[in-house]
Amino acid sequence: MTAINVVVNGKSYTREVEPRLLLVDFIRDTLSLTGTNIACDTSQCGACTIHLDGQAVKSCTVLAVQADGSTLTTIEGLANGKLHPMQQAFWDQHGLQCGYCTPGMIMAAAKLVEENPEITEAEIRHGLEGNLCRCTGYQNIVAAVAQAAKA
């Protein structure tokens, strides 16, 4: 076992973990933050996207030990009193159907807009290539990201 310390959504946690524990399992099972989903578990779908030291990453493809000393934000930490503009936009534009891909979509999209506030529709589509929606609700997802960019 290896001791790690991480700050997740503003709160500091120190835990003993097995080196093989995936960051997504650490978030879901060890910290009981189950908003982050696991879908493909093969680095393709983006459902597990979180922010690791300010960058969108697929947490099923990071070991918890690699995150030692890092600052993480999960979907639970995005709202700050009221919904984050990206969350509000997904609500307004009905950017979800079953909702399974949604936490990862929102985390990925929030970074895209933060890094490129003038984002175009083509850039939104290119930027969300790492996030798959099995309900294929892409049209409304793109509309939601465009709304959030204007917010």
Partner: peptide, 9 residues
């Protein structure tokens, strides 16, 4: 390469 999340890692 891949997508933004992959390029970040």
């Amino acid at each position: 390469i891949g997508d933004p999340q992959v390029r970040n890692r």
